[in-house]
Design a binder for these strands. Structure first.
Lengths: 343, 343
DNA sequence: TTGTAGGCGTTATCAA
DNA sequence: TTGATAACGCCTACAA
């Protein structure tokens, strides 16, 4: 039993290849009986169309790629699920693709567009430093949860959806300060970070400033570069070191929930309690934060809403030829058990 | 600037298409200077070969697909990383593909083989109930962490790597019993589960039996079918219900760590303590278990080793034409803070 | 070492 | 409503 092709099916049914093609692709101009007969033969012989050939020939496949930077990111998995639903509703197919931290998502996108004849692209996370490359992308795309794409980009070329990372970060730190904390350590991104990491740090600094608390550089603890970014283990290691350094602080603000959980473990392991000895806050609002013990105080990004908005704006551009749009969505401060008022 | 093709590059360089092709594919019979010149032109013009066309023509791409059932499964993400490394070492490419719980992974595999000219497939998780379909798979494949594929399969057609779910489950429950627990609830799979869920339940039952503890059906709490399987929220809901039912027990064994974490939350929320009031144990040994508070007692599957073994056996079959093999790897009981001795 | 030409499996165009 | 046929972009004999 060799590999079946459309020709084999055509021969088997005594029809031309184009008729078979029409049957497969639900073309309207085909006799229902012929179609039924063909579909039957296809079923029985287990024929599967070759996608490569299809993509090669097709002008446009009704598919949209979602490129996720950094897998095992719990935060994204909910978003993807919602996007899949929404895209399905529009009769399109979602092509999911993971991009490693060291891969260039734009290269991947460029490739995928050629290979799959994509109608559009959604970028989930990532940085985007290369203006020239992005300009080569001829299909509509949306940056989702990528706040602060570089200013040198032409903002008319794409859409974006994100929370205001700086403002939300400010909100959290301001909240901690209002609780009475003055020495607030921040578990931040690596110093070269130009994206959300930078913005969240900026929010931290502004909150201190507006509350007249001098910035203490020793309270800024960047993630380690030799470990996975935004991972629990990274948060754990950095916090452990921070604790051992004997720098005094009463609250720790991690710029992501995963980091925060790692931080919590380091604190608990050192014999200290949360929130009695240290208040800990995160950012993102992943489901795990609710389940952690203590439950995490965090900034909850409206994942469902963002996912829905992302797909919506993409289809606006795609179908209605609408202009690209840049949306900022509000996030919510969730008060968990991991922070307390300092009396 | 339209889409570049290999012809454009050829014309641009004043050479034939085959020469360009040779340059791209690192063929040996090409003048280094010509090659350099061509690669340069490719770079400058941002030409990207069309993968669909390549796959269509190629007899076999050096790529291996990894099909993961149920994404957002933390347990798998480590395995994938290791597999990627190992596969890269062999100069092959890893094609990652997620399969939803309601999709049929074999259909997906069949498609992918055609589209990508795969050399082999790795299945991560899943069930495999359709013998006929699997037989259509003409490339070598390995079932990884899928213990207990149905008996009606011809075991010479594929390889498999897994822990002995029944025995490891027995180990855990036996451990709990040795700690003095007699009323051990189990957070189990849905009753139709024919795979790991069934095996882990079997281990539970045997442990009770061998320790002369009568089985109490009311202590078996299956996951809810209307929620995501093996999720924290599922574990949370089921445990909450269990606690409210006032059925007495001193230990809770969840057949996965994610379930266990959900269970912990439900217990803590009810005002009880772990392990003082309830001991909780999980299964899988995901990283999160270490970071949870209290850290989880669990059965740690040797993920790295399994991933490595999976790739190894696949390449044995692929390159050396070796026979398919079925490996059972040992797991380790990790004693965390979530269980205690009952005095 | 290089170029020409044919074909991979499919869809789209056109004529029947 | 159908069928023949020309692309789609690439790789690979084979010939030069």
């Amino acid at each position: 039993m060799e590999e079946m092709t459309i020709k084999d099916i055509a021969k088997l049914c005594g029809v031309g290849v184009s008729t078979v093609s029409r049957a497969i692709n639900n073309h309207p101009d085909i006799n229902p009986e012929t179609k039924a007969m063909i579909m039957n033969a296809i079923e029985e012989n287990g024929y599967i169309p070759n996608n490569s050939a299809r993509n090669l020939k097709r002008t446009e496949a009704k598919s949209i790629a979602v490129l996720v930077k950094g897998m095992s990111n719990l935060f994204f998995s909910t978003m993807i699920k919602v996007m899949e639903e929404e895209i399905k509703k529009k009769k399109y197919t979602l092509v999911l693709h993971h991009v490693e931290f060291n891969e260039d998502e734009i290269d991947v996108a460029l490739q995928l567009v050629k290979e799959k004849r994509l109608a559009g692209i959604i970028f989930l996370g990532g940085y985007f430093l290369h203006k020239e490359k992005l300009e080569k992308l001829q299909v509509p795309y949306v940056l989702s949860t990528v706040s602060g794409p570089p200013d040198n980009l032409d903002w008319k070329d794409f859409s974006s959806i994100a929370v205001d990372d700086e403002a939300e970060s400010f909100k959290m730190v301001d909240y901690l300060i209002k609780l009475g904390h003055k020495r607030i350590a921040i578990l931040s991104a690596i110093s070269m970070d130009e994206s959300i990491g930078k913005l969240r740090l900026l929010g931290y600094k502004r909150a201190l400033q507006e509350n007249h608390i001098p910035l203490d550089e020793s309270l800024i603890a960047p993630m380690r570069t030799d470990m996975e970014q935004y991972s629990m283990s990274n948060g754990y290691m950095v916090t452990k070191q921070l604790l051992e350094s004997n720098i005094k602080f009463t609250a720790l603000y991690a710029i992501s929930d995963m980091l925060a959980i790692g931080a919590c473990k380091a604190i608990l392991e050192s014999g200290k309690r949360i929130p009695e000895d240290y208040s800990v806050a995160g950012f993102d609002g992943i489901e795990l934060g609710k389940y952690y013990n203590p439950s995490l105080t965090t900034i909850k990004q409206p994942v469902e809403e963002m996912a829905r908005a992302t797909v919506k704006v993409l289809f606006k551009v795609l179908s209605d030829n609408a202009e690209h749009k840049h949306q900022v969505v509000p996030a919510e401060l969730i008060k968990g058990e991991s922070t307390r008022e300092l009396l």
